[in-house]
Amino acid sequence: MLGQYLPILIFILLGIVMGVLPILGGWILGPKKPNKEKLAAYECGFPAFEDARLPFDVRYYLVAILFIIFDLETAFFVPWAVVLNDIGWFGFWAMMIFLGLLVIGFIYEWKKGALEWE
């Protein structure tokens, strides 16, 4: 069964080649006439005022944290969903309790305003 994963590895390697080759081709065929203005970061024609790596909104970080929680939840759901037909009502209700806890957390986030982007 593991042999089935070999084509995936080959596909990934070929994907890397497909990405690198055109860039190399462009490097060889394209002109190379750099100058200071051309290599400066784009900022509507002005020289950049300050460093581009500005502090960003904390909400992006919050979204990332929430994403981890919910993505883990999905990871727990996958094996359950595959065998749902075999585990019957007991399995169904067990998962509903888990889902209920998460929904309470979700409602809490919502009420606290973690999902607001005004």
Binding site: I23, L29, K33
Partner: peptide, 28 residues
């Protein structure tokens, strides 16, 4: 293919060149 590859001075040049490949590989 025949356009100049511009790598800005302020950029991290290796990451800058790796990024497009990283975007393409999963898609393929």
């Amino acid at each position: 293919l025949t356009k100049e590859l511009i790598i800005p001075t302020a950029s991290n040049r290796y990451l800058f060149l790796i990024a497009p490949v990283l975007a393409l590989v999963p898609a393929l």
